[in-house]
Design a protein around this nucleic acid. Sequence first.
DNA 1: AATTGTATTTTATTGTCAATAATTATTTGA
DNA 2: TCAAATAATTATTGACAATAAAATACAATT
Lengths: 224, 224
Amino acid sequence: MDKQGVYEDIKQKIMEEKLLPGQWLVERELCESYGLSRTPIREILWRLCNDGLLHQESNRGFTVNRLNLDQILDVFQMREAVEGMAARLASSKGGNAFMAKLQALNNQLREVDIEQNAFAGVLLGRELHNAIVAAAGNGLMSDMYQKLMSLTILTSNLTRKSTEIERASRDAHLELIDALLKRDEDRSERVMREHLRDTCRVLVAQFYPGMLDAKHVTTQVDRL
Amino acid sequence: MDKQGVYEDIKQKIMEEKLLPGQWLVERELCESYGLSRTPIREILWRLCNDGLLHQESNRGFTVNRLNLDQILDVFQMREAVEGMAARLASSKGGNAFMAKLQALNNQLREVDIEQNAFAGVLLGRELHNAIVAAAGNGLMSDMYQKLMSLTILTSNLTRKSTEIERASRDAHLELIDALLKRDEDRSERVMREHLRDTCRVLVAQFYPGMLDAKHVTTQVDRL
DNA sequence: AATTGTATTTTATTGTCAATAATTATTTGA
DNA sequence: TCAAATAATTATTGACAATAAAATACAATT
């Protein structure tokens, strides 16, 4: 397997929780299992570190990054900033293909039975978010979004406890699509932000019950 | 010089335009001048690459990153998103120390004679932006802001042609401080965004005259 | 004969590796 | 419990391989 392949393989293993937060990645073991020497492996580990997936301690090596509650809140706060702007830009600059994509997602979302197949809804939601960021047409934004999504997924395995999150997201996603289709920039940004704050609340409630009074989560936007 | 020192030295050389965009950084030369071996130099180069200061081409090495107009616009768009949110958070969560800092900056800014000493104004402006992001209390935001500032400085040597930029920024900075002191979240964010868009316009006008009709720069916010 | 185009050689540079040094963690003995 | 010895792991180094650019030599064409 070549360097790029190894990079993606490790990344995926972290995403799929085959490598758990806090777990040490031993260079020698990685060399043996992938058949590469330490130098390229090291380079890969640095990349993953800069993606936010790994954490390095000097002279100790790399672990899978573990986010505490404050960091999770930080991630969602940044997602509000970045994806909020993405929604604004997409609503004004999105082309025909984007609008068609929104229509398609709208129809698919309405058809999905959340209680029966929540994960399908989650996947559609991700597609929506990805499409919005892509439509914003800002490469730097795409990079930062990618990093934020990595950190989001690192937060918790969304695949499992997804029902409640999806239940909370569906209406917001439909409203978001509506705002985008109407090219309402302000509403698009506002809905996106509120949606992310809600998602964050639900997620925190699930994984850190009894901590909803944390400062970040209760921040309110009077008017956007 | 140790690893961290070399990292900062190269970074500063890029900031000060002692290393120019497009210029190749040859590993062997860096090894000789800093007295380190290739592996740690390589590690430093990867870090700088992930900071956005360098650009890598496979089997060719690293160059100082060169931003085209579109990328510059992307940077400022992201700064609007990130620093807009920073202003919002700082206005609501900023403590006594932050408020005192704002007062001090307010006084200093009013005293500075722009026409005579524009750079002093630029430095105060940077201090203000830094203080706002710090007051937002989001580590991830600080990281992303750092990267965006690196890219901003890479854009052009702001030290030289700073008079016009500072002239355009001063009033905005004062208004921003006012909004923050009054803890007006919405206005703080709005003013920050408008200020960054104006700065971007001035900068583009200086370095890319006759291109102000570029799509990004003309994007307007009706209501924030 | 001069010039252009192409193939070949040379050079410069990065990519990879395995051995060694330095650091940190663990075990063992009192 | 503490200290020293041992083991495990990362950090660095220098040598070598692979790759890409540059220079050169040569042939083809006008």
